[in-house]
């Protein structure tokens, strides 16, 4: 099971990098979303994948008998999912606002905050 999921994680990373390199803000945001999901899956696999073995330790024992999945990474992912979900919601709204006020989602055209440098003006009276 793990190798299969590992390949899926790799594919998701590849997709997200492809999307992140795009010039469209919408694709970029989608790339971020795919990247965070790939990360969650990666941490999920790191905690082992087992079926039908609940992470319970029998009374009087220190460790579980059967190979169980580590529940901690799952707790970590849960935290990370909530966080990335809220941040993604913000970025989506921001993208919408950017489209409304800048009239473009082309990252190359978004230069309001960083105008192209002016041609060097040589003025004798400077200083």
């Amino acid at each position: 099971m793990e190798p299969l999921i590992a390949i899926v994680v790799g594919a998701l990373f590849a997709i997200s990098v492809f999307l992140l390199l795009s010039g469209s803000l919408i694709r970029l945001v989608m790339g971020l979303f795919v990247l965070s999901n790939a990360t969650h899956l990666l941490i999920f696999v790191a905690g082992r994948l087992t079926r039908e073995n609940p992470p319970l330790i029998a009374e009087g024992m220190k460790v579980a008998e059967a190979g169980i999945a580590n529940p901690l990474p799952q707790a970590l992912i849960l935290t990370a999912i909530v966080i990335s979900f809220s941040l993604f919601a913000f970025v989506l709204v921001l993208t919408y606002r950017a489209h409304r006020s800048l009239h473009t989602v082309d990252t190359e055209a978004m230069r309001v905050a960083e105008p192209a440098p002016r041609a060097a003006r040589l003025r004798g009276r400077d200083v």
Binding site: S36, R97, S101, L102, M110
Partner: peptide
């Protein structure tokens, strides 16, 4: 407008950084 433009770059790159950290 300027703020929205700056915020997009700030948000996207910082989100990317925290995801890499994760």
């Amino acid at each position: 407008r300027e703020q929205i433009d700056g915020a997009v770059k700030y948000a996207v790159l910082n989100l990317l950084a925290t995801t890499l950290l994760l």
